[in-house]
Design a protein around this nucleic acid. Sequence first.
DNA 1: ATGGCCGGTGGAACCGGA
Length: 268
Amino acid sequence: MKIATFNINGVKARIETLTQWLKDSAPDVALLQEIKSVDENFPRTVFEDLGYNVETHGQKGFNGVAILSKYPLEDVQRGLPGDENDIQARWIEATVVGEKAIRMCGLYLPNGNPVELNSDGSPLDGGKYAYKMDWMARLYARAAELIAAEEPAFMAGDYNIIPQWEDAKNPGDWTEDALYRLPSREAFRRILNLGFTEGFRARHTGEGHYSFWDYQAGAWQRNDGIRIDHFLLTPQCADLMQNCWIESDIRGREKPSDHVPVWVDLAA
DNA sequence: ATGGCCGGTGGAACCGGA
């Protein structure tokens, strides 16, 4: 089963690019982020006509996540548990049943910039960085449940985390950025340390592998990118992983998103 | 050396992204 995560930066603006990609690359499952659409306006029939089941968790203007699947989706849950006051649409999960049942979680982790801190270095209440760190604490809790279940499951999406220096062309530019500063990486590492396998780094080493290039300043042409879209697999899911790769050439096509798809192939 | 984009909203400039 071939599964891709893809931050599409607006479903309306990306409809041509996205349908061509679905035809060419033919994922069995696509987890989408930044659909920037409410559920009622999501062009679901376009995807249903291509053979996909469609589940969305949208919001007006910003954010929004969706799952497209050629297999039936069961037990769909919307929203990351842990804060009833959080209205931002950044989490959706569902079970896909192929040869095996896989619990799939699609996520769009908050960016967190600008970083606003108290004098002791703790995140300023109500700020965007505090929201990011709070969201990651809730993610940790859900991740711990997935590990405890001891079943094939993964969390995939735009984590807005650069895990290590080799995941940025110019890491020095990012030292105090919300995507890379040490507390952000520590929070990501704590989740990994629950027992997850980061799919890409289980298969590839070294510099120069990115999943996002800014629209500005010819970032794509200079390969000035960062790797922030990730697959985290439970041990039972990691055992099914055949491969993991980044479909970077998508970034050079007509009217691209600023992100590209990241893939896993599971024996499921 | 510097600045350089894009999408959505709403109907012009602004917000948000990373």
